[in-house]
Amino acid sequence: MNFLIIDDSGVMRRIHKNILLDHKIDESNLFEAENGEIAVTIAKEKNIGLFLVDWNMPKLDGLKFVQIIRALPQYEDTPIIMITSEAAKYNVVDAISAGVTNYVVKPIKGDILWEKISRYIK
């Protein structure tokens, strides 16, 4: 199962990547993108099983990325966890409306994030 980590912060991508590596996810299954635009390209080339996506990013933000991905037949039902600092209720409503599967507010401890990720691992 492939994972795509999408965040404009290299430090955040490293933190999320390390959580997956710590739980025996093979590095060859991990892909990274620094914005939604690059992530769409990777998603079309790889068969992604779980997306971890930030909201605020340059070029194409997480919300628009989710809308684009959900319009692709192969990703209609693929789990998408949005991991964002955006904590307002209206942000959560917008994200769920766009097709996000699970919404997580940063900062989040690694073990709690892993508990959420592990629900979707086949």
Binding site: S9, N56, T84, S85, E86, A87, A88, K89, N91, V105, K106, P107
Partner: peptide, 9 residues
């Protein structure tokens, strides 16, 4: 980013 986003709630 985290401080500002969290404060919004």
């Amino acid at each position: 980013n985290i401080v500002a986003g969290n404060a919004k709630k």
